[in-house]
Simulated scan of single mutants.
Amino acid sequence: MRFSVLASGSTGNAIYVENDEHAFLVDAGLTGKKMEQLFAEIDRDMKKLSGILVTHEHSDHIKGVGILARKYKVPVFANAKTWDAMEKGVGNIPLEQRFHFEMESIHSFGSISIESFAVSHDAADPMFYIFHEGDRKLSVITDTGYVSDRMKGHIRGSDAFIFESNHDVSMLQMGAYPWNTKRRILSDVGHVSNEDAALAMSDVVMDKPTQIYLSHLSKDNNMKDLARMSVTQTLQSRGIICGEYVHLHDTDANNPTKLVEV
């Protein structure tokens, strides 16, 4: 498998995953034009997509879903409650392109198996995805207020993680956001902080080469250097030294990561 985090942040999210047979998008939270630009930057053809996998109905995850589905005739997968919640946001998608991917289920596409699992976020029925091919495993978890033992059980031992590291708690608390917004972000249905993300990572990383992409960073309440430093220090306090077998990577709201192999 190969993947690229095309964009990650509060302004839009999209992740590309492929093998030699199939290609998928996890979310398409940017305009159709921007999505086409991002595909061009990784030298990939949107016409070859096998499907768009939707995690939840928030606009930074579905903004481009409808236009891409209609323009490129791409199948769209989501659970029933998410389909209901995102109807207005994605517009009319032909019935033959609408597929149900229910919570805690596995769908196989050739040699790739995709597993869904529940997260804790303020959406209708939010879930994320794990990609399996042979003994290789890629886990995506970018919108959750906390990482439960059940979530950890799903993603444990992945070769690569696209993992939320949304905010620095002090920056958020001292920042200009209204208190209701701060309370929502800090809640169990909001987003995980740098430190909480790292604590969860320390429970799911195994003793093998592992790539971690720090994702969904808040543009107002986090910085790439700060997120990397906080995660590195917290992992080190738990006996995991970054740079040995665990490697951290940045993601960006506007620029894709390099297409890399899992």
Results as ranks from 00 to 15, higher is better:
residue 151 M to N: 04
residue 66 G to T: 01
residue 55 T to H: 00
residue 102 E to V: 04
residue 43 D to L: 00
residue 71 K to N: 07
residue 56 H to N: 14
residue 49 L to Y: 01
residue 85 A to D: 11
residue 75 P to R: 03
residue 136 R to Y: 03
residue 52 I to E: 07
residue 162 I to P: 01
residue 79 N to D: 15
residue 152 K to Y: 04
residue 103 M to I: 15
residue 44 R to V: 06
residue 89 G to Y: 03
residue 156 R to E: 14
residue 127 M to Y: 04
residue 149 D to K: 07
residue 109 F to P: 04
residue 106 I to K: 12
residue 60 D to K: 00
residue 150 R to S: 14
residue 120 S to W: 10
residue 140 V to E: 03
residue 145 G to N: 03
residue 59 S to V: 12
residue 160 A to N: 10
residue 55 T to A: 09
residue 155 I to P: 01
residue 129 Y to W: 04
residue 84 D to F: 08
residue 85 A to Y: 05
residue 152 K to E: 13
residue 85 A to W: 09
residue 66 G to V: 00
residue 80 A to M: 13
residue 86 M to R: 08
residue 112 I to S: 01
residue 116 S to C: 06
residue 114 I to G: 04
residue 63 K to S: 07
residue 68 L to K: 06
residue 129 Y to H: 12
residue 71 K to I: 08
residue 55 T to W: 00
residue 75 P to C: 10
residue 93 I to L: 11
residue 69 A to L: 01
residue 76 V to K: 03
residue 67 I to P: 00
residue 55 T to D: 02
residue 168 D to P: 01
residue 83 W to E: 10
residue 114 I to D: 09
residue 49 L to T: 04
residue 70 R to W: 01
residue 100 H to R: 12
residue 167 H to R: 02
residue 99 F to Q: 14
residue 116 S to I: 07
residue 137 K to W: 07
residue 66 G to K: 01
residue 117 F to W: 07
residue 63 K to F: 10
residue 64 G to C: 10
residue 94 P to W: 06
residue 59 S to G: 00
residue 88 K to D: 15
residue 38 L to I: 08
residue 167 H to V: 12
residue 50 S to H: 02
residue 176 A to R: 12
residue 158 S to W: 04
residue 163 F to G: 04
residue 125 D to I: 06
residue 153 G to H: 07
residue 172 L to P: 03
residue 107 H to R: 15
residue 80 A to G: 05
residue 81 K to Y: 09
residue 127 M to C: 10
residue 65 V to G: 03
residue 82 T to S: 13
residue 121 H to S: 08
residue 81 K to M: 12
